[in-house]
Write a protein that binds this DNA or RNA. Structure first.
Length: 426
RNA sequence: GGAAGAGUGGCAGAGCUGGUUGAUUGCACCGGUCUUGAAAACCGGCGUACCUGAGAGGGUACCGGGGGUUCGAAUCCCUCCUCUUCCGCCA
């Protein structure tokens, strides 16, 4: 959620930011409406406070009068208070309505992009920030896509998943299950040695939590929902991890806050079809290790690059072909100010698969969840939040299988071998 | 799931027969005096958000959340949530 103060003080910059993010004309028109509505809010607040101040004073007087036995005088004042109370009731309702309308409008505005974000509408407009420094693997004619490899070596059963649940819920078996577990441990260990604190959060969260990180109301349809208990299945560990610091005032010495956690992620992915959802490309349930940072605003972009380097190091250790994209304004998520996507090459499919997305949200999330810190001047300010996948498993498994396949099996990268306990899938 | 009790400022802990109580006090924390230095002692400060003001300051709201009674509620009533204890169930 954008800060209303920024909207008012820096209107032109906000508008040009919204345009860069391909906001609609309706969204841009909201800016002026928000400003005038907030002015209205202030007037009402001032009037209301004045009336409440008067009633408070009169109530005190009434108390004193009653104690000194001047009941008739007190009764006189009572009617005066009653009139003021009617007035304040009206203003209170107005204030509530204005605040609701304001929130409703502000929540519709996406975050504004960082200056380095390239202009553009679609995925094709993203900038290749960094490409792999090695040659793309040449797998030859007989290379198989991961879903065929999974079947050939009995690693994953998509069919069994359909029986148990439905499409998009694969069942991992044998060396495939072991590979999953190995990757989870490998990624967690890497994060821990980079200084992240490991967290095991709940997989179901309440409305407040889903709202604070921006999943509600924006992505309501994307989440699985347990109606009976009013809980949402998390679409990413970002949600519970970041919310650990909801409604908090940090000291400067608390920075940096570095959290990591492994969780399954649940996404409805309604409307996806075709080659997009083939095999492990897009699932309703997949495993992911997330890294979350809460930072001082002066440090957050430095931190973002640190996270990018961390994710890159993982892909290098797994010996996977990758590229890093700096997302253009139109392709960025609603919440983000700057996002780097990581893609690995699916050699057999001839396409790039997104395996990580590392973003700085600046104060967009912290404003909604009231995550502040006390700055040197003693004032509270909003902290910056960041997060990234390090990494998302299913697609990593897909490209790992494809890129490391040889005639008689699939080679396991050296870094992963201590975790798998085998060096070859056969 | 059933029964009883409880939720107050960073923590501990008063207030809860309604009226200068945003809230006694202790600890923690910050500044100062004293000291060669430290500790102790003493003095002072010490919540958040919003409105207003150039500023100093002034005002409003908040004692788990929401609603109600009343001129006036941390204090009374309703409701929800959470915690503790006992019972039931159970990985």
């Amino acid at each position: 959620m954008l800060e209303i103060g920024n909207i008012k003080e820096d209107k032109e910059r906000i508008i040009s930011g919204l345009k860069k993010k391909n906001a609609s004309q309706e969204q841009i028109d909201l800016v002026d409406k928000i400003i005038s509505e907030d002015d209205k809010r202030k007037v009402i607040q001032t009037n209301l406070d004045n009336i409440l101040s008067k009633t408070n004073k009169l109530s005190d007087e009434i108390g004193i009068l009653f104690k000194s036995g001047q009941a008739s005088k007190a009764t006189e004042l009572k009617s005066e208070v009653a009139a003021l109370k009617d007035e304040s009731k009206i203003l209170e309702t107005q204030l509530k309505d204005v605040k609701e309308l304001l929130e409703e409008m502000i929540i519709q505005l996406p975050n504004t992009p960082h200056v380095s974000v390239p202009f553009g509408q679609k995925a094709e407009d993203n900038e290749v920030f960094k490409a792999w420094d090695k040659a793309m693997p040449d797998l030859g004619e007989n290379a198989l896509p991961h879903w065929e490899l999974a079947e050939k070596y009995n690693l994953i059963s998509f069919k069994d998943g359909v029986t148990l649940t439905g499409s998009g819920f694969p069942v991992y078996k044998n060396q495939g299950a072991r590979l999953q577990r190995a990757l989870i441990n490998f990624f967690l260990d890497e994060a821990i040695s980079a200084g992240y604190q490991e967290i095991q959060p709940p997989l179901l969260v309440n409305k407040e939590t889903a709202k604070a990180t921006g999943q509600l109301p924006d992505k309501e349809g994307q989440m699985y929902y347990c109606e009976k208990d009013d809980f949402y299945l998390i679409p990413t560990a970002e949600v519970p991890l970041t919310n650990l610091y909801r409604d908090t005032i940090l000291q400067k010495s608390d920075f940096p806050i570095k959290l990591t956690g492994y969780t399954p992620c649940f996404r409805r992915e309604a409307g996806s079809y075709g080659s997009d959802v083939k095999g492990l490309n897009r699932l309703h349930q997949f495993d992911k290790i997330e890294i979350v940072r809460i930072e001082h605003p002066d440090k957050s972009y430095e931190t973002l690059m640190e996270m990018v380097n961390h994710v890159e190091s993982l892909l290098k250790k797994l010996e996977l072909p990758y590229r890093i994209l700096r997302l253009c304004g139109g392709d960025m998520s609603f919440n983000s100010a700057l996002t780097f996507d990581f893609e690995t090459y699916s050699a057999a499919q001839g396409r790039w698969l997104e395996v990580s997305s590392v973003s700085n949200f600046e104060t967009f999330q912290s404003n909604r969840m009231k995550l502040r810190f006390r700055d040197d001047d003693g004032k509270t300010k909003l902290a910056h939040t960041l997060n990234g996948s390090a990494l998302a498993l299913a697609r990593i498994v897909a490209t790992l299988l494809e890129n490391h396949q040889v005639a008689d099996g699939i080679k396991i990268p050296e870094a992963l071998q201590p975790y798998t306990g085998y060096n070859m899938i056969k």
